[in-house]
């Protein structure tokens, strides 16, 4: 069995409930648990792969996915079993960071990259330009 944590970036318009609904509609044999930061899914490797592709199709730029060591609702981790919060400090911290991460490059960046690729102006071309300006 495979388990994945799907975290939706705070900048995204997607909601955990929407992602959960989409996953339910796929008809895959999955355990889907909706959480405040996204969704936790569990199932066999094949179904998980399909589900991950489906979620990435929704918006791959604003969705982050990682494995989870413990199964869904595992008694050693699940809050429902022993009340106290075991702590999601790292997830919380990364969730904050996500708000200023953008996986897609902006138009400005693309222009910068283009300029970098084009490289510097040749000396001869520069001389021509200077002459033209002088005339």
């Amino acid at each position: 069995m495979e388990t994945r944590i799907i975290v939706i970036s705070p900048a995204s318009s997607l909601t955990p409930s929407y992602v959960a609904k989409v996953l339910h509609k796929t008809g895959l044999s999955l355990t889907v648990k909706e959480t405040c930061f996204g969704v936790i899914i569990e199932g066999n490797e094949k179904d998980i792969k399909k589900a991950v592709e489906k979620v990435r199709d929704l918006n791959s730029e604003e969705v982050y996915i990682k494995e989870r060591g413990f199964p869904v609702a595992d008694k050693r981790r699940c809050r429902a079993e022993h009340g106290s919060r075991p702590g999601f400090c790292q997830l919380q911290s990364e969730y904050e960071t996500m708000s200023y991460l953008s996986k897609s490059s902006s138009e400005e960046e693309e222009e910068e990259e283009k300029k970098e690729k084009e490289g510097k102006l040749d000396v001869e071309d520069l001389e021509k330009l200077v002459k033209e300006e002088a005339d």
């Binding site: 944590i5 975290v7 982050y64 996915i65 990682k66 494995e67 060591g69 413990f70 960071t97």
Partner: peptide, 30 residues
């Protein structure tokens, strides 16, 4: 950090295999 969600996602999207803490822990606890 070996348990990073953001890094794991970037590496996976880049078409490589991320070596993560979660995978190792999974082997132990399951």
């Amino acid at each position: 950090p070996p348990n990073s969600l953001i890094l794991r996602d970037l590496v996976k999207e880049g078409g490589h295999e991320p070596l993560t803490m979660m995978r190792e822990i999974k082997k132990k606890v399951t």
